[in-house]
Simulated assay, not measured.
Amino acid sequence: MSARPTRQPASAGASKPASPGRPKDLAKGAAILEAAKRMFLLHGYERMSMDQIAAEAGVSKLTVYSHYGDKQTLFLEAVKAHCEQQLPEALFEPSPATPLRERLLDIAAAFHAMISSPEAVAGHRLMCTPQIADSPLPNLFWEAGPRRIQNGFAALLQRRIEAGELEIDDVPRAAVQFFSLLKGEFHDRLVMGCALETTGSVDEHLKASIEMFLRAYGQRPGAARTRAS
């Protein structure tokens, strides 16, 4: 009689399939995220606890942990949600029918509105506090917010290059330059609480920044014909 195959014991390091468990309540998840945005900005990162956020959201602490795992993850999800709300992925879609200058102006207006909002200014100041500056949070914050925006814009630039509308050798650098132009002196003054200059409107500043960007990277007349010849 042949021996029956023996069942191998699972190794200690083998990962087990996650149990589906109960589906998460999306409304509670959204309430936690909104509460986290408010509480982090009002009281800072270090002084906030998951208990306080749970109380603000009207849920149990266990519910907060089941949705977001820990305070750091919740903070980063709040940053990501704020950026996605202000600069949705749709702004970085190819949309070849939309003229390049118009698309850049749409992105510029949304970006400027985001960075000048009270929430964004408070978050920027929070990242500069000594308690946060010496922690891993600034780098994580950068990846969850600014880096995501830069990457999305760089992908848009690459598609416009392929369409023959732009000439850019270093696309990631050009993406950084674009948003730096949009910030200008305005954002520095806003974060530091200085009186804002009144030389020209925000709309004029954004349009001038886009014109400068296009003068640097826009397709030169006859360039397409030169490459094709």
Results as ranks from 00 to 15, higher is better:
Val121Leu: 10
Ala122Lys: 06
Gly123Leu: 08
Gly123His: 04
Arg125Thr: 00
Leu126Trp: 00
Met127Asn: 09
Met127Thr: 11
Cys128Val: 00
Cys128Ile: 00
Cys128His: 02
Thr129Ala: 00
Thr129Glu: 00
Pro130Tyr: 07
Pro130Gln: 08
Gln131Ile: 01
Gln131Gly: 12
Ile132Asp: 00
Ile132Tyr: 00
Ala133Trp: 02
Ser135Leu: 12
Ser135Met: 10
Ser135Gly: 07
Pro136Lys: 13
Leu137Val: 09
Leu137Gln: 06
Leu137Thr: 09
Pro138Asp: 07
Asn139Ser: 13
Leu140Asn: 10
Leu140His: 12
Trp142Gln: 13
Glu143Ala: 14
Ala144Trp: 01
Ala144His: 09
Gly145Thr: 08
Gly145Arg: 07
Pro146His: 11
Pro146Gly: 03
Arg147Tyr: 11
Arg147Ile: 05
Ile149Pro: 07
Asn151Gln: 15
Gly152His: 11
Gly152Tyr: 12
Gly152Pro: 13
Phe153Asn: 10
Phe153Ser: 08
Ala155Met: 09
Ala155Ile: 08
Ala155Glu: 12
Ala155Tyr: 02
Leu156Asp: 07
Leu156Tyr: 10
Leu157Gly: 05
Gln158Ser: 14
Gln158Pro: 02
Gln158Gly: 13
Arg159Glu: 15
Arg159Phe: 05
Arg160Met: 05
Arg160Glu: 03
Ile161Arg: 11
Glu162Met: 11
Ala163His: 01
Ala163Ile: 07
Ala163Pro: 04
Glu165His: 01
Leu166Phe: 00
Leu166Gln: 04
Leu166Ser: 04
Glu167Thr: 10
Glu167His: 08
Ile168Asn: 07
Ile168Met: 06
Ile168Ser: 04
Asp169Pro: 10
Asp169Cys: 14
Asp170Phe: 15
Asp170Gly: 10
Val171Phe: 04
Pro172Trp: 06
Pro172Tyr: 04
Pro172Gln: 07
Ala174Gly: 06
Ala174Cys: 08
Ala175Tyr: 05
Val176Gly: 07
Gln177Asn: 15
Phe178Tyr: 11
Phe178Met: 06
Phe179Met: 07
Ser180Tyr: 10
Leu182Met: 09
Leu182Asn: 03
Lys183Leu: 01
Gly184Trp: 06
Gly184Asp: 06
Gly184Leu: 05
Glu185Ala: 11
Phe186Leu: 15
His187Leu: 02
His187Ser: 02
His187Gln: 08
Asp188Glu: 13
Arg189Thr: 11
Arg189Cys: 14
Leu190Met: 07
Leu190Gln: 08
Leu190Ser: 01
Val191Pro: 03
Val191Tyr: 02
Met192Val: 02
Met192Trp: 08
Gly193Gln: 03
Cys194Pro: 02
Leu196Glu: 09
Leu196Asn: 03
Thr198Asn: 15
Thr199Ser: 15
Thr199Gln: 15
Thr199Cys: 14
Gly200Trp: 12
Gly200Met: 13
Ser201Ile: 12
Val202Arg: 15
Val202Met: 14
Asp203Asn: 12
His205Ala: 14
His205Cys: 11
Leu206Thr: 00
Leu206Trp: 01
Ser209Met: 04
Ser209Arg: 06
Ile210Cys: 03
Glu211Tyr: 05
Glu211Thr: 12
Met212Gln: 11
Met212Leu: 14
Met212Ser: 14
Met212His: 14
Arg215Asn: 11
Ala216Val: 10
Ala216Asp: 03
Ala216Tyr: 06
Gly218Asp: 12
Gly218Tyr: 08
Arg220Phe: 09
